[in-house]
Design a protein around this nucleic acid. Structure first.
Ligand SMILES: [Mn+2]
Ligand SMILES: [Mn+2]
Ligand SMILES: [Mn+2]
Ligand SMILES: [Mn+2]
Lengths: 218, 218
DNA sequence: TTAATAAGTTAGATTAATCTAACAAATTTA
DNA sequence: TAAATTTGTTAGATTAATCTAACTTATTAA
């Protein structure tokens, strides 16, 4: 069986590879908040298990076996988040830390039952895709709100980098997934936008926020 | 924070102390399936934390602090078992192994929410009491079915030692908590009993089984 | 293209949790 | 009570996961 630590490294490698196709020791060290020598030795361990390709001083890459293993951990994480929100009434800003622990539970039937009770959801509460049992992860093609033009009408579909801070901000503006957004205007100087949605009229959103809101055309 | 290993030792000590008021190294070693030297060094660690009273060669006893810490782990375990059965549809024979892992999740709000969704249950799916948030454990006064006489009518309230084997046996006889049992006869030679309940007439139960069925008068 | 900086590695130590082998103390049996 | 058995302890080793200090390799800036 894989240790929680190994599962966390795999997940971190998966995230880094998704962003930039290749990962390195320093990024892993920063992301996992452990020293570089610690990462170095764990990477040797993962290589020995055939989960990652690694040669001294070269960039890291998950093998297919490693990619799949990582996706299955991510599946446990995201199913858990969805379960916590849909079945236990937690807010989307509360679930990540709990899921970070529950994702390491070793019980296929437990996660199977979650999936079943949830009706086989395809995304987690932050709009990220839930990998299937074979480790296949749907590729999302959403655009960032930043790329929209005044007059566009779009639906909020997912978030990029759903940190607790960001989620708290969205809560304060009552912005939830599924809401329709109407782009009123774009301030070209700083990239901020004025939008209408739900019960909010002329809400101004900074470029930082718009960058992280992933939308689809209606 | 307490490690999963420490939590498991506390729970084991709690169980042993409940049965016989005092525990010893060999029993812990057998129960936890680790060597005696391993137990010896963990006991020193728990003593250093003020969780157990221990002097070389003397019997072990949880301190009040240790007793409470153990009860709170047991609370997490039993709430989880109840949640798995009531809210996720697992059988009472499936939940122990999953709860053995989930009991180590560090998230007060997670177990609070379980408790709330369950309506603050006082017993787990095997009839064992769920300790309260202060670590107080209700003392159960049920009798063993073995102590009943022909003609007695009782209700199955709890199980003693709910092993997977025992639960499978009870499932095969459709015996569940809450069922009314009518003692038809007692075979004094081997202590076996013939009982009626639910849709079962003249079911014979061995002494071993009767010993482990805890009942209350109707 | 050298010097400075960043990234990566090695060596060696630490801590928690575990083991086996050897021995000592306590308890039970004869 | 003496012998045998059980129980408990000590010593020393191992493994996973971590650290710091020191060093090397690679990259970037002068
Ligand atoms: Mn998450
Ligand atoms: Mn995790
Ligand atoms: Mn249990
Ligand atoms: Mn456990």
């Amino acid at each position: 069986m894989r240790s929680p630590t190994e599962e966390n490294y795999l997940k971190a490698l998966f995230h880094l590879s998704n962003d930039k196709a290749e990962a390195n020791i320093s990024e892993l060290s920063a992301l996992l908040q452990v020293s570089k020598p610690t990462v170095n030795s764990m990477v040797k361990n993962l290589k020995k298990q055939g989960l990652v390709n690694y040669e001294k001083y070269k960039p890291l890459k998950l093998t297919e076996k490693g990619r799949k293993a990582a996706a299955l951990v991510l599946r446990k994480h995201r199913l858990t988040e969805m379960y916590l929100v849909d079945k236990m009434g937690f807010g989307w800003e509360e679930v990540h830390d709990i899921a970070e622990q529950i994702e390491h539970i070793d019980s296929p039937v437990f996660f199977e039952r979650m999936d079943e009770l949830l009706g086989y959801p395809r995304v987690d509460p932050h709009g990220s895709p839930i990998p299937d049992k074979e480790g296949t992860v749907e590729v999302q093609t959403y655009q960032s709100l930043s790329n929209c033009k005044p007059g566009d009408k779009v639906k909020l579909a997912a978030l990029m980098h759903s940190s607790a801070d960001f989620l708290a901000f969205l809560n304060s503006r009552e912005l939830s997934l599924g809401h329709e957004l109407h782009v009123v205007s774009l301030e070209s100087y700083d990239g901020s936008m004025v939008v209408n949605y739900h019960n909010h009229q002329a809400e101004t959103l900074s470029k930082t926020v718009c960058d992280r809101l992933l939308v689809e055309p209606i």
